[in-house]
Amino acid sequence: MNKRYFGWARWLVIGSMLLLLVLPLGAQDDAAEGSTDADMSEEEEPEIPFYSSSEGFNVPILSTWVDESDNMTALFTNTDLQARIVTAAAGEGDDPTAVAADKLGITIGSEPIFTNRVNTADGTWEQRYYDEGDTHISILSKTQEGRRYVIAFIESNPDVAVYMPLIDRTWDDESALPGIEQSIESLGIATADELPEPTLGTVSLPTGEWQTATYDLDGTTVTGYGLNFGVTDYVAIAVGDNASVPDLVDAYNYTLLGGFFVTTSNVEYLYLGLAVVVIIFAVLLISMWMRWRNARRDLRTVEQLTSN
């Protein structure tokens, strides 16, 4: 009876094991069908090529600009717009202005026309703005994990002065106008009272929907761009010919919004993980070896007993 029992039972046991495998495979198909929408939208996202510095920070590569980066410093140049964007890392105590000037190969002699600190979702940034005649420089810097990271935007077009300030969002409505006017005042271009009624508009750039305000200040065109980004407004102010502004705004803020970030240093967790792997294998191997040794000793004892 035993034999007969196993004869048919074994196939049923094997069959039921196969059945056990069919269930999850089936569930997998169902789930795959259900989630096609999500998968599709994910696939449609473009892949952003990143520049990764050996100093541990990363910025998106500006594909339409000339990439003059080296191993440590990201430098993108656009000769048509007469602008450069540099991202670098330095010691925690280093002066960001000196770092930016060094990386750009220029000297910055004047005092900043405006400087303050802004708390963004991405940490506290110190911002400085310089007016060196035809050359206008915006410098952002922050310290993180013992390094000072500097992002500088320099523009040398004699027809226009462009600054890219960040403004704490202290007002409630969606409008970017208060940020633009605050920037114009802070940069010392005009006081709020002097500003005439602006011409408002919006510009759609890859970085987002920017609100624009154009002022006619005694014959000089002052153009403001503003983007509401949670706790911070990203602003650009151009005094003079504003033809190049959209490109500059987009390129600089692509670096900022699109993804400047510092790769976290967490190598100690990697070492901890590897130590755990080593310990677990060591425990397994040592336990196996001990059992083997004990068994062999027992075997020898038994063999001695039998030979006696």
Binding site: A9, V13, L19
Partner: peptide, 19 residues
């Protein structure tokens, strides 16, 4: 549905391994 399938698989498994 999952419950039903799991039930059947477990029943079949237990039925044949109980011996």
């Amino acid at each position: 549905q999952i419950l039903l399938v799991v039930d059947l698989i477990y029943l079949v498994l237990c039925f044949f391994t109980f011996g």
